[in-house]
Design a protein around this nucleic acid. Structure first.
Length: 634
RNA sequence: GGUUCCGUAGCUCAAUGGAUAGAGCAACUGCCUUCUAAGCAGUAGGUUAUUGGUUCGAGUCCAAUCGGAAUCACCA
């Protein structure tokens, strides 16, 4: 039963009967909380048809609906807004229908396949808070799309090669002394991350001493760089000698730094290591495999704790050479063009984008080339209809170009491409930078959350009956749940702030509150069972007049499907997060207003137990769409 | 400089072009002898950055201005 479409049909009929007009695309809005009713029809846009004041139209329509529609019980008009109240009988009918559903909010299969690519870590450092937002968003979107009826493939494109990986390797070769995660007793990803930071320290030191000599002499004397670089620096120095303003001077020095950095020993070593890697040098490959192996072990542990899994893992070391055949194809199709220096480009100025490089003059590929190849690979592997990339908003431009290029190449899957762009997580001190160590580490944060969860749960002392193992699990789902909810409830597009001092909420608009309401529903069910009560429809057949908070609960539970639809269409878990909090709040109010076991009327008792049960199922289902578990007691 | 995104209560965030701009945190007042107080009820807190425009109606759409961020590499 779909109450909304019934109402719309009746309103359309009303327009025919009252005004002899066919109206299309009628839409209803949820009635604001302060007003009575559940569905609101706005009459302002129809004054031209009715040739009446909005209030008059609303009254006429309201009376018509009250007389002709079985679902409308009564109506109220407020300044042209027609607020409709659905009869309790209909709500009770809807309630029983929902109770009969095996899985709430599960749509029929669409027959379409969608891939959600997320996480995509670099293997040179452990996961941090920013990755968590990515992981939770991606995981949740995958779950929501599955509920919507898509067949979902969760994929992870691991960035396991490149200059940044070589940096950790260089530092390990220098300072490693054969350390392993075992000998140090730390996770492999953290160990490798430590060397990544060490590399940066080395490089900074080298850079500073080199710069000092340039700044002292204000010349490039004694520097052993290629002529072209020396010339570049000299030009910059000359500009500096012309006494530019302070800000400009700073820019010039930065430009010089950038040139110099490329010729610091550490940087050269890293580049050489990358060349060796690309040549397949055995020693290098072995070190690479060893260190990446450590990182994967660490990642696995973290993913397991976060409850995140993938169906397919792509490695960039496998895919980084892909896409070159697409360059040829594009050239033949005349979509791309070749420069005099034989580099390959695409001109997207007509689409308000720039000219974009697709292949270097030396014939090697760039980031874009790989992504083109990987897009084809995904399609070959899974014949996907839609492909969602969960990647930070710093890459908005890249994905605009990528999708445009695929469209111009006439790829059949081009239309289904979507970049789920999300904002960075900021600290009060500003942006996180892993090289500078100003990051909130994922493992640390999860551990801290769990500790807080344990502390707060113990304070309340409602958990005597749980075993040690059950307690462990409880603390984990509360701690991790709080974190997930915190990161996922915010609109993905916006950057957000995380204050380590205030940490994550455990009260109010937060996962523990929602989990708590779920635990309450189970507390009711336990008591009901202990008292030998039954709550099948026949046990509450005489219950026909709903209390406001009961009505509100049914109403909001009834909204689940619409919310799933909305969040799936917008790739927005935040919609589910806001929804599930509303459900929890509504139940909490019901809990306070409608006593259950003290109620003398046995049918009211049974109905409220049944309502608690359905609320519990709704909370569990909606939370599962966010990847958050709910406990039966806490 | 070009392009894109953002600016809402002290703080963190909501609000398919609709009603009196809502929650949570923090502050203040009540409520545990009653199914779990991680709770409930209430008070206070706003010129939605600014100025114009479109509309029956603008936080939302358009233009300009101010402030912040990202991006614009033969990096990934």
């Amino acid at each position: 039963m779909d109450i909304e479409s019934i109402l719309i049909k009746h309103i359309e009929q009303a327009f025919v009967d009252l005004y002899a007009t066919q109206v299309e695309k009628i839409s209803l809005q949820p009635t604001k909380k302060d007003f009575e009713g559940s569905h609101t029809f706005v009459t302002f846009p129809y004054t031209k048809i009715t040739r009446q004041k909005p209030d008059e139209t609303a009254h006429l329509l309201g009376e018509y609906l009250q007389n002709h529609s079985q679902v409308v019980d009564r109506f109220h008009v407020v300044q042209g807004f027609l607020n409709l109240t659905i009869s309790d009988r209909i709500w009770l009918q809807a309630f029983d229908e929902m109770r009969n559903q095996k899985e709430l909010g599960q749509f029929a299969p669409t027959g379409k396949k969608v891939m959600v690519e997320f996480s995509s870590p670099n293997t040179n450092k452990p996961l941090h808070l920013g990755h968590l937002r990515n992981n939770f968003l991606g995981d949740s979107v995958a779950r929501i799309l599955a509920a919507r009826g898509y067949e979902v493939v969760k994929s992870n494109l691991v960035n396991d090669r490149g200059i940044h990986i070589c940096k950790s390797m260089v530092a390990y070769l220098r300072h490693g002394n054969g350390e392993t995660p075992e000998t140090l007793g730390i996770k492999g990803d953290h160990l490798v991350g430590k060397y990544y930071v060490l590399f940066d320290k080395d490089l900074k030191r080298e850079l500073e001493s080199e710069m000092l000599s340039i700044q002292k002499k204000h010349s490039t004397d004694g520097l052993n760089y290629p002529m072209t670089v020396i010339q570049k620096i000299n030009t910059l120095l000359q500009k500096l000698a012309e006494n530019p303003e302070e800000k400009k001077a700073e820019e010039l020095w930065d430009a010089i730094k950038k040139e110099v950095q490329n010729y610091c020993p550490s940087q050269i070593e890293a580049k050489n290591l990358l060349l060796k890697w690309e040549a397949g040098n055995e020693e290098t490959m072995n070190l690479w495999k060893k260190m990446n192996g450590w990182v994967y072990e660490g990642f696995h542990a973290t993913y397991r704790k976060l409850g995140i899994e993938f169906d397919k893992i792509y490695y960039e070391s496998d895919t980084y050479l892909l896409g070159k055949d697409i360059i040829e194809e594009g050239l033949q199709k005349g979509v791309f063009y070749r420069n005099a220096d034989s580099s390959v480009w695409i001109d997207l100025t007509a689409d308000k984008l720039d000219q974009k490089l697709l292949l270097r003059s030396d014939g090697t590929s760039v980031y874009m080339t790989q992504d083109l190849g990987t897009a084809d690979l995904k399609y070959q592997d899974y014949q996907i209809d839609k492909s969602v990339y969960v990647v930070g908003n710093e890459q908005d431009y890249h994905f605009k170009v990528l999708f445009k290029v695929l469209e111009k190449l006439g790829r059949p899957y081009a239309e289904g491409l979507y970049h789920l762009s999300y904002g960075m997580v900021d600290l009060p001190t500003g942006k996180m930078k892993s090289r500078e160590g100003t990051v909130v580490d994922a493992d640390d944060l999860v551990a801290e959350m769990k500790e807080i969860a344990a502390e707060r749960t113990r304070e309340r002392g409602k958990i005597e009956e749980l075993s040690e193992q059950e307690l462990e699990h409880l603390f984990e789902i509360i701690g991790v749940g709080a974190l997930k909810y915190f990161l996922v409830k915010v609109d993905p597009g916006k950057r957000m702030l995380f204050d380590p001092l205030q940490s994550v909420d455990f009260e109010g608009d937060a996962a523990p509150f929602i989990q708590y309401q779920h635990a309450r529903t189970h507390s009711i069910l336990r008591t009901a069972k202990a008292q030998g009560l039954a709550w099948k429809p026949e046990n509450y057949a005489t219950y026909q007049k709903l209390e406001p908070s009961e009505n509100n609960l049914i109403l909001i539970i009834y909204d689940l499907e619409r919310k799933i639809l909305e969040s799936a269409d917008n790739y927005a878990p935040s919609i589910i997060a806001q929804y599930v909090y509303e459900v929890a709040k509504t139940y909490s109010r019901f809990w306070n207003e409608c006593p259950i076991f003290q109620t003398p009327d046995p049918d009211a008792k049974s109905f409220r137990i049944a309502l608690s049960e359905l609320t519990g199922r709704t909370l569990a289902r909606a939370m599962s769409l966010l990847g958050i578990e709910v406990p039966e007691r806490m």
